[in-house]
């Protein structure tokens, strides 16, 4: 498993549009992708889980990836989050 800490930077946080985009991108990987926020585990491939987690701008979280393509998945996840999730 690989993991890294990061922070949400887009002003509106993880609302529907960024959550949907993020989940879709993560589904392209075989690895399990989890976000850990406030001790809760969030399935990064689930738009509902992502929206329900109340990730706001400034929220600090950990990305954990586990599987064959875990390095690539982690890099992509971090890149998306830190570039503001397309916003």
């Amino acid at each position: 498993m690989v993991s890294k800490m990061t922070k949400i930077v887009n002003p509106m946080g993880m609302h529907m549009r960024p959550a949907g985009m993020f989940a879709q991108e993560m589904m392209k990987f075989n690895s399990d992708v989890m976000l850990v926020f406030n001790d809760k585990e969030i399935n990064a491939k689930s738009i509902m889980n992502l929206m329900a987690a109340c990730l706001k701008c400034g929220s600090e979280l950990e990305v954990r990836c586990n599987g064959a393509d875990e390095e690539a998945a982690l890099n992509k996840a971090i890149e998306l989050i830190e570039s503001g999730l397309g916003e």
Binding site: M16, R17, G20, Q24, N43, K45, S46, I47, M48
Partner: peptide
């Protein structure tokens, strides 16, 4: 599109 993504949500 939000609803379409919900339909492909593995968790739900």
């Amino acid at each position: 599109s939000g609803q379409i993504m919900m339909l492909s949500d593995p968790f739900m």
